[in-house]
Design a protein around this nucleic acid. Structure first.
Lengths: 145, 145
DNA sequence: CTGTTGTTTTTGAATTATTCAAAACAATGC
DNA sequence: GCATTGTTTTGAATAATTCAAAAACAACAG
């Protein structure tokens, strides 16, 4: 897909949720296209070359707006900074490395449906269930001892 | 149970994992007996009356040692500070309020076992699965709008 | 009980992700 | 184009947590 078409898509995405289309927002969305589980700083660095003058605060602002609008999902595994991703429609989960904080997607979980039903809800109105698997990534398995 | 007996239990707990027994560690463990999902500051405030002169850094140090030793579990729901709990042997999960960050336990999950098996592990060696249910607590359900 | 050793706590400061606020600026509707 | 309203910049603040050095202390041997 040519660059123009991608940008048009992203423009439509923003219009769709009633957000103004700005260069910063397009750049952040574009950066998220090719990055999975990027944090604010990674996105800031990705945006900087094509859009110098962008501030970190603007990136936080854009990510906040996109998140509120439901265009990005935000995860914050213990020990990591907040990470953002565009995959939102599927109910996928995450593997997090306890040593290096690397994050990978888990497309689905065997027998997932029951997991979304806690036994006692303590009066909570439940909106979503988040599953995080903790362990060691392939790299870090060698470093044990 | 008399106070002395509780303290003896906690002393044994520390000995059991090869940690030195200090007044601060006993105080933190004792504070955790009656509090669920307490954060460092809550524990600090709970410890202060009986053990004045204790520093917040000491509380962080104690909690770190207890966590490393496997005596306490540490959760860090997005948007909250780190919280600590003594329930570690059962595989229970959490409900977190999206508005006030209140945390409640979920004793178990219907059909829990399958949840511990992700479909693709991406080469990870998995140690544990953490399930967080997001929603609104009974209090905060009234504040919508 | 006492001295020694290694660990823990205190004291004081640093770090870092994130947020806040006011002013400059830009997108959209007319 | 122009006004309106939302967004970004600029600059500073916040707050949880960690780091480091020195003092205090628990555990153990004698």
């Amino acid at each position: 897909m040519p660059q123009k078409a991608v940008t048009d898509d992203l423009t439509g995405l923003l219009h769709g949720v009633g957000l103004r289309v700005t260069a910063q927002r397009l750049a952040v969305l574009l950066a998220l296209e090719t990055r999975r589980h990027a944090d604010a700083d990674e996105i800031f660095e990705a945006v900087r070359p094509t859009l110098p003058g962008t501030s970190v605060q603007a990136v936080y602002g854009v990510l906040g707006a996109l998140h509120t609008a439901g265009l990005v999902r935000r995860i914050e595994p213990a020990g990591s900074t907040a990470r953002y991703e565009r995959r939102i429609d599927d109910n996928h989960h995450h593997l997090v490395c306890e040593r290096c904080n690397r994050v990978e997607d888990v497309d689905c979980v065997v027998g997932a449906a029951p997991c979304l039903t806690p036994s006692n809800t303590s009066g909570f109105e439940i909106h979503s269930a988040e599953i995080t698997f903790w362990g060691l990534c392939s790299e870090c398995q060698h470093f044990r001892g």
